[in-house]
Design a protein around this nucleic acid. Sequence first.
DNA 1: ATGAGTTGGTAAAACGATATACCTGGGCCC
DNA 2: GGGCCCAGGTATATCGTTTTACCAACTCAT
Lengths: 369, 369
Amino acid sequence: MGVDVPPVTTLSSVAGQMERRKPGKAAKPTIADVAALAGVSVSAVSKVVNDRGGISAPTRKRVLDAAAKLRWSPSATAVALRGARTRAIGMVAGRSTDVLATDPHFTLLISGIERELAPADFGLLLHIVGEEPGAEERAYRRLAEERRVDGVILTESRIGDPRFELLRQLRLPAVLVGEPWREDPVASVGAEDQEAGLRDAVRHLLEWGHRRIAYVSGPEDRVHTVYRRRVFRSALAERGLRPWRVLVSDFSAQDAVAATRELLAADAAERPTAILFANDTMAVAGMNAARRLGFDVPGELSVLGHDDLPLGELVFPQLTTVAQDVEALGRAAAVEMFRLLDLPHSPPPAIRPPTLIPRESTGPVADGS
Amino acid sequence: MGVDVPPVTTLSSVAGQMERRKPGKAAKPTIADVAALAGVSVSAVSKVVNDRGGISAPTRKRVLDAAAKLRWSPSATAVALRGARTRAIGMVAGRSTDVLATDPHFTLLISGIERELAPADFGLLLHIVGEEPGAEERAYRRLAEERRVDGVILTESRIGDPRFELLRQLRLPAVLVGEPWREDPVASVGAEDQEAGLRDAVRHLLEWGHRRIAYVSGPEDRVHTVYRRRVFRSALAERGLRPWRVLVSDFSAQDAVAATRELLAADAAERPTAILFANDTMAVAGMNAARRLGFDVPGELSVLGHDDLPLGELVFPQLTTVAQDVEALGRAAAVEMFRLLDLPHSPPPAIRPPTLIPRESTGPVADGS
DNA sequence: ATGAGTTGGTAAAACGATATACCTGGGCCC
DNA sequence: GGGCCCAGGTATATCGTTTTACCAACTCAT
């Protein structure tokens, strides 16, 4: 209804004209059908659609018209088989459904990647595997052995990440979103000044008089966990301070609640006056845990998140957080992949550095503290 | 590091043995390489990997060993070209990035779909297109014309949805997640008793004495908007009541805030004592809007969401909501797709009906009201 | 008139699998 | 021993493109 397509008979009548198909079995048009309709050879059609020149303008037009009339596009599988190029990029998410559901990071990234992929007529082949060990490796292996994709985009690099070596052996071009660990041999994309957001966040707290600042970090094996802890430390060191406490979490809301309870269980003089969480979901969970314990936010405790999820604006009080330009990261990763594949590509997008978004969950330190 | 793969020389030395390739250009193994290594014909290998019988046990083992040694799997593109089956399912998300970021519905669905797809060695080709008119149609068209997928899974059916007719013309098998509009010709999956959740939600409010219940629904063109409004009405009618007010939204947080403000601007006697929102994100936004206006939740206003996002447990007060079994829906859609494609498939999973999850944002109606 | 270069095209060989049709040697029955 | 069947293969056409090599016809300089 309302979709502008000519009646189906157009297609089948033309196909019938060619009397190549068994009657009744209306098949999709092929390059040969187009060539026949345009009155030229198959290779002439191929030259036209691939802009390879050597075809006169009138012939070219005839071919294009015929293709449009039959609604023909080159079959992706045939092209892939012939050219060793699949026109598809793979992505494997090795995370539990739960984390995926709370954290739209992944979705935003995909959305950015697609922005670049779609105009180039590339597809994104997604695999969500659980966290079982080996599942991720199997997924990459299959992608490579079956030659389903031209390359893969990775996220969440870990320390000593085995994926890079695996992909090198599989000869699958790879682009990492985020910082690789030291000299890990992988192409990667990230903002110019990765550290800006967290550094500003710490300064923001310091300006408000906080001196006992705790950090609830992500899992130890994540590269960004280590980097961010380092930034946290050095930003405090600028004023001659040290982290009050640093706790490790698995990114889950439960861990955030547990960490918050532990931090707030101390005597008033030992209690942190501010907590930075590794992501917004944890920050919100922690903030509510604190309030349930009777602490006012931000009156008695300032809370800071990371990632600027929409969620942060919806809660009360609104969450102070660090915004990352996730969509641009996705686009940059796709562009970098095209570069690796020697394909034409747009200039890499500018990626905004992580930026502090001050909202309501942070405030001046309480008088007595 | 730590990944268990033999050194790369294994592969290239075997390839070299066959002296088929240009030196230096280490190519991926093909079925011919496997056949040569096993000392059989190409077709024998094909018969083994496709379980077509007629091959003795010892030969079969030799072939399997050779394939494992070369780390060979049939090339997906070659199989697709030959067999007209792509082993990939498509999915097109025609939503703004914003909505996608707040609402993990889509992610959960994908995760469920993948659970079925992965064991069958099918891939999921994802396209996120914006909301520009025509973008979605172009995406489906490309998927079909380039023969990239065997079928597509759809969500969010609209009234008079043009996609079904389009896909029929494109001859692309389709499965809809959710209810089709009336007699729309499309296979679909949904829970047995779709209406249970919302009906229970209304009863829950009625039991607590609420009589002025408002509903902030989704966009008018969504099928479930219409169905749910109908359920809302009929659940109230059971007690001889009528909806106090019904507002339409575009699913955005802004709309939720605006609707809440409008509903609460009325005189005390005209104000709703409870608001049902079409999804959790809106419910949270609305709840906080109410609190900023000075209304206690649930003391002066009960708030109900829909979908049971993890978010609902994180906010304060925790959100009463209706849980949907989204992952099972995804799995069911994949199974149904396999059925359409005449492929072996697991039995369709049981889909839990939508269920009321009572939490803190609903309570007894205030005395004065 | 001859040869070289250009233009606009054609024919046919890949690409990597699968499926069909055909072969071969042995066992079995009469 | 001839005919037949069957297990266990093999050879080859096919899927829909792209690309290489080639060719015919025409223009132009010699």
